[in-house]
Design a protein around this nucleic acid. Structure first.
Lengths: 174, 174
DNA sequence: AATATACTTTACAAAAGAGTAAAGATTTTG
DNA sequence: CAAAATCTTTACTCTTTTGTAAAGTATATT
């Protein structure tokens, strides 16, 4: 389980755009210079981000890239999904079928259940962090565990929060 | 960000051992047959798991593999770490330094902060799930979100749980 | 001891991912 | 309209991961 190079560097390029201020154009060579990456590689990364609808490109003299939306409205989940897909994608079981046509655990697969649960958990985290959060450095999560219960707050926990968990609706699990 | 083949298949092999009951020996070809994998591939996976101290091997006629510990005492975190390392390892920044000797974000890197936060979050989840949980199918998490607060319970939330989050101790973040 | 069973190790081939190179297309500027 | 700037696309190479093959080592049984 790991972050791919495309995800790591693509995110950094996007973050550089977010930091450059709204609707300012930034060229590939500028971004490459700031991030210590080659121009062709940054071209490829930005092409992915453009296809994912996260940046817009303007060709020709004076052109460049800029964010397609307010950085507040771009979640880390969208970014990583655009750059390489989610932790568990719909084709997971087909891809990991071993030597067979169909995975032996096709029905009632606890591995898939738990990895899917993890993927949802990761998605919660990523969907809750915006590009703006990263640009401003609001990146730490606050975690508290009480027995088997875990409470996480993102952002700045300035006010008291009270959660009473009675019977949790299983349908709320993504 | 994805699960590697070695992690997926290695976990399945270990789970097959966990389901086979305590201290029973199981041969590579048995496991390969049950999982739909080739014998040489399962050999490689089990060698990794043995080096990680999760299974023990007995050679010769009547030999085979068995879990090194009670499945209740083996966390998913240990398994995935043994099979391929954590989401973010200590060498992350050195590996993703682009064309430079040192990552341009060497100091004060918000990308590393947030990915490190995510890695800790994932670790919480994985460390809280044992091989026994998987073998028995206790794999679903229960997630409830209230604003920017997220509450997760693992296992069966049979009794009412009340969490009052006042000022969260930042030192509790791993 | 010889044989069969079963783990162990090393080496290798195929596939996927990472990164580079080069030619093409579009827009602005002079 | 020509030239410069800048994005776009395709193809290619290198490295890592995936999976296979084969030879080696250890143990139990006869």
């Amino acid at each position: 389980m790991r972050i791919t190079a495309v995800e790591e560097y693509g995110l950094r390029c996007l973050l550089t755009l977010a930091r450059s201020g709204p609707s300012k154009q930034m060229s590939i060579s500028e971004i490459a210079g700031l991030e210590g990456l080659s121009v062709p590689y940054v071209s490829k990364l930005l092409a992915l981000l453009r296809k994912a609808g996260l940046v817009t490109a303007v060709r020709g003299c004076g052109g460049g890239f800029s964010l397609a939306r307010d950085p507040k409205e771009i979640s880390l989940y969208e970014v990583l999904k655009g750059l390489g897909g989610p932790l568990i994608d719909p084709g997971h079981c087909e891809r990991y079928a071993g030597q067979l046509d169909q995975c032996v655990h096709h029905e009632n697969c606890s591995v898939h259940d738990v990895l899917g649960g993890l993927a949802g958990y990761v998605r919660e985290f990523l969907a809750d962090t915006s590009l703006e959060d990263l640009a401003l450095g609001h990146t730490r999560g606050f975690v508290r565990r009480v027995g088997s219960e875990v409470t996480i707050s993102r952002g700045t926990p300035s006010k008291n929060v009270k959660i009473i968990t009675d019977k949790i609706d299983e349908k709320s699990i993504q």
